[in-house]
Amino acid sequence: MADENTQQKKEESKKRPKRHPNKNYALKKRLPLKPVDGDNVIFITKKTNFKAQLDKCCDLLTRGEKEIILHGLGAAIQRCCNLALQLEILFSGTCQIEVNTGTVDCVDDLEPLTEELDFDSQVRCSSSIHIRIFRNAMLGANQ
């Protein structure tokens, strides 16, 4: 059953039209708008090594940070969730998780490929996840 399902999904994704609006423009992406940055804010990406980001979070929490905030956008949402769950297991009982979801407006530049057209831009909505991990008890009172 499961195999059939995945196959079906594959076919569906093949059928889905590509996002390119037409042949006159080339799509160029801009940096999405960022939420408030800080020492305890981590943006989860697909490119950065998962283990490295997990270690970074662990470091922050053991160093005595009260809460850390993870942001994931689009395809990085799954990684973000995985990371938060891993953290919950690692700091079992001493950490709690609060999850928020949202939508981020990403702006794309449409660069013309022909001389007669002007630049254009479009807004693309992308889902986002914001996970707050906070300590409810310190690990080892003497630390």
């Binding site: 160029k28 801009r30 940096l31 960022k34 940055d37 702006v107 530049d109 660069e111 630049f119 831009s121």
Partner: peptide
């Protein structure tokens, strides 16, 4: 927060 967010 970055010049990359502005029109190219």
């Amino acid at each position: 927060s970055s010049p990359a967010q502005l029109p190219a």
